[in-house]
Amino acid sequence: MLDGAEPSVLDVKDLKTVFKTRRGEVHAVNNVSFHLKAGELLGVVGESGSGKSVTMMSLIGLLPSPPAMVKGGQVMFEGQDLLTATDEQLRAVRGARIGFVFQDPMTSLNPVFNVGFQVMEPLRKHMGLNKKAARKRAQELLELVGIPDAERRLDDYPHQFSGGMRQRVMIAIALACDPKVLIADEPTTALDVTIQAQILELMKDLRDKLGMAVIWITHDLGVIAGIADRVLVMYGGQIVEHAPVRELFANPKHPYTRALLETVPSVTGDRAERLRVIEGQPPMLTAQPNACPFRARCDKAFDRCQRENPARYSVGPIHDVACFWNPDTGGARDV
């Protein structure tokens, strides 16, 4: 699944998104490049404001413009650059070839329509099914995501579902047109742990069954460890580290990733007397991105980090890191 021979379904190159504000431009996404292979689960991890959601929203033109502006880059999906596509072309992709699941299932479902209508909507719009066929498919979808008594529940309204069940409905809608790529933006953050565990199992199961590629955005390293094949770590609007999940947790190279892994307590394993702390605050992103975004909080930073923004240097077969410091030698990277 991770070898380089397979073609990518989604290829993002040098994506740049800025927000125009009264205080100047905010560089929310800065030169982000990544690819996604068929059937793989790519985890994107970062704190709030690190640019993980904005990156995904930029891909498929979901950001309101103004204030947002995609300033450059290329997003190749099925032979088409999504950044230059017309609105009409984008509409044919969104919800059909690329599905979405958002964080809060209450605000992303429409409270005045029943669930059946909302699951059937993409089926009728994108696949041209008639009402009867769409209803039958909608019932199958609800069964697929594990909603009991699916036929009857099609006529229920979102408020009659619990949080976990609503998120299952959202997943059913996203899967309706058999998408090639599913983007899940913090889909379990608003849910309780026992419900989160249910949804994670469901997603792994569905991915194996349907063979779609998934981008899973989260701030929870535990979730990433359990679900992802490959991981992008984002900080300050940039990808700072990229590696397969086991490699990332066993052998993190970026000072931010290393610190982040140490700040998170666990329910098993050793218990530290004091938690490791990353001092300071995340950066504001209003300055031109011509220095490392992590420099102010980094205990390894030296002068070059203040003057230059590191590129992503390869440190293994599928492992790269945007940092001038080399943890293996303990000194500056030879670049």
Binding site: T194, A197, G222, I224, G226, R246, F249, S266, V267, G269
Partner: peptide
Amino acid sequence: EALLSAVPEPDPVAH
């Protein structure tokens, strides 16, 4: 027991 086992551990091997 169920609550503890539902907590995702930040360790891919443990998963």
